[in-house]
Amino acid sequence: MKTIVLIRHAKSSWDHDVSDLNRPLSKRGFTDANLVSKAFGAYNFNPEAIFCSPANRALTTCQLFMDNIGLEKKLLTIDHELYDFGGNQVRRFIKSLDDDLDKIMIFGHNHAFTSLANSFGDADIDNLPTSGLVMIEFNVNQWQEVSQGETKMILKPKDFK
């Protein structure tokens, strides 16, 4: 059994003259990421690895989740392949994971995460919002075999406001 938790980065701020990679979270982004991460923490999901895009907004979201859930920093790997908006790079990344890992979290971007949630899961998601989370389970033993799984959870900030 393989389980993926996809988390779209929290709402970013466009008020700064920085590159896309360096864009920070907005005030709402911090609020929403805290709401969703604290709610997700109640499920006691213990990932064996956490992967994150190098984008500032994704990394800050990841750090908020890790802090609120109490996950160890040593679980985190930052990978440039996750700075992907279409989904093909993230799909390749997932299919190349070490088969010793069974439960992972990935922090990244849209449209990639909405697309992956819809192609991997069995729920129809119109748009995974910022700070949105989707958990998908696969009845396979190898990441290369991941194709169609079962959507076990969808958390959105508006669910906790």
Rank of each mutant, 00 (worst) to 15 (best):
M1H: 05
M1S: 06
M1G: 09
T3F: 12
I4S: 02
L6T: 01
L6Q: 04
R8P: 03
H9D: 04
A10P: 13
K11A: 09
S12T: 01
S13Q: 08
W14F: 10
W14L: 05
D15R: 10
D15K: 12
H16Y: 15
H16L: 14
V18P: 04
D20G: 14
L21G: 03
R23I: 14
L25F: 03
L25W: 02
K27V: 15
R28G: 15
G29P: 10
G29D: 07
D32S: 12
D32L: 08
D32N: 10
A33F: 13
L35M: 13
S37N: 08
S37W: 11
S37Y: 12
F40M: 03
F40H: 00
G41E: 00
A42C: 09
Y43C: 14
N44K: 10
F45W: 13
F45S: 04
F45D: 07
P47Y: 06
P47V: 08
E48L: 08
F51Q: 01
S53G: 04
S53Q: 05
P54V: 00
A55M: 06
A58I: 03
A58Q: 07
L59M: 14
L59K: 14
T61C: 15
Q63E: 12
Q63A: 12
F65L: 05
F65Y: 06
D67C: 15
D67Q: 14
I69W: 09
I69M: 09
G70Q: 04
E72R: 09
K73S: 11
K73L: 06
K74N: 08
K74E: 08
L76W: 06
I78C: 11
D79V: 00
H80M: 06
G87M: 07
N88C: 05
Q89P: 11
Q89T: 00
R91I: 08
F93N: 01
F93K: 02
F93D: 00
I94L: 04
I94E: 05
S96E: 03
S96I: 08
S96G: 11
L97H: 02
D99F: 11
D99R: 07
D100H: 12
D102G: 07
M105W: 11
I106S: 05
F107M: 03
G108F: 05
G108A: 01
N110W: 06
H111Q: 12
A112Y: 06
A112I: 00
F113D: 04
F113H: 07
T114L: 11
T114Q: 13
T114R: 11
T114K: 07
S115Q: 13
S115C: 10
A117V: 11
A117F: 07
F120Q: 03
F120S: 02
G121S: 14
G121H: 12
A123E: 13
A123Q: 14
I125L: 07
N127P: 05
L128Q: 01
P129V: 02
L133K: 01
L133C: 07
V134H: 02
V134S: 02
I136Q: 00
F138H: 01
F138E: 02
N139A: 06
N141D: 13
Q142M: 10
Q142F: 10
W143A: 01
Q144C: 08
V146W: 00
G149V: 15
G149S: 05
E150T: 15
M153E: 08
M153L: 14
M153K: 03
I154H: 00
L155I: 12
P157C: 02
K158P: 14
K158L: 13
D159F: 12
F160I: 01
F160W: 07
K161I: 15
